[in-house]
């Protein structure tokens, strides 16, 4: 397996967005691309990442291989890569180590690292194709701000989506608060748009702590999509451009 990405910053941002939820994960390499699925230890949330092969500058994978990686170790290695460096990832069939090569844009600096891989027994979950009742698209910076603002007030947030608005409400020890967003009427910048597609109104409660973990993915995409259905896990998606891939989180709801 060998793959080369022009910008190491993408991998660095992906890692930042998942390393607080997951400690070890299998990076699954196949001819289609690189993917990862992992749950947090309490099985409340799940991360699903896909990088399509066509998003790479070069991608070669003769047969599927899983690279079991400790994310703290990978973070240490990626700290040695500049944001604008290209990154080449290599692994052989034995699958006991992975090789990382970082090259500066001017090609005058080359650094190489080898990471020991581990055997990870991970449970793969089948996520059914779902027709969600409510889909909200909003700026990821707005999502991050709401989660961090409301997170200081309480542990859970009630998300209510209607045709007219999406409302985030918190009820905590010191008091309560809410933020309500209406779909944008005037659109200056596509990245500032709030869009709501609704089959039926949804009103659900989630842990703010997890929503805040997911907000770490905000640097990956200008917009975020929240998909909700009653008594079903919330899906939060950050897309890396059109053809590149995505990072999705799933969060189990609080239920009666």
């Amino acid at each position: 397996f060998e793959a080369r990405l022009t910008q190491a910053s993408l991998i660095k941002k992906i890692l930042e967005a998942i390393k607080d939820l997951v400690t070890d994960a299998n990076f699954d390499c196949s001819p289609e691309g690189l993917s990862l699925q992992a749950m947090d230890s309490s099985h409340v949330s799940l991360v699903s990442m896909v990088l399509h092969a066509q998003g790479f500058e070069m991608f070669r994978c003769q047969r599927a291989v899983s690279l079991g990686i400790n994310l703290a170790s990978l973070t240490k290695i990626l700290k040695c890569a500049g944001n604008d460096d290209s990154i080449t990832l290599r692994a052989d069939e034995k699958g006991d180590k992975a090789e990382f090569v970082f090259e500066s844009q001017s090609q005058d600096r080359l650094s190489e690292f080898e990471l020991k891989l581990m055997d990870i027994d991970s449970e793969h979950l089948g996520i059914p194709d779902t027709k969600y009742s409510a889909i909200v698209e909003m700026p990821s910076s707005e999502y991050r701000r709401i989660c961090s603002d409301l997170g200081v007030m309480g542990d859970t947030v009630r998300i209510s989506v209607s045709k007219e608005s999406v409302k985030f409400q918190v009820d905590g020890d010191i008091g309560k608060g809410s933020v309500c967003l209406h779909p944008s009427s005037v659109v200056d910048k596509p990245t500032e748009v709030v869009k709501i597609s609704l089959e039926e109104p949804v009103d659900m409660i989630f842990s703010i702590r997890y929503l805040n973990y997911f907000a770490k993915a905000a640097p990956l995409s200008d917009t975020v999509t929240l998909s909700l259905s009653k008594d079903f896990p919330l899906q939060i998606e950050f897309k890396f451009g059109e053809q590149m891939g995505y990072l999705r989180y799933y969060l189990a709801p609080k239920i009666d």
């Binding site: 799940l46 449970e123 089948g126 059914p128």
Partner: peptide
């Protein structure tokens, strides 16, 4: 009082 569910009750293990 609402309690936290887990994903295992919604998604099947492959």
């Amino acid at each position: 009082m609402k309690s936290q569910s887990t994903l295992l009750s919604f998604f099947e293990t492959k």
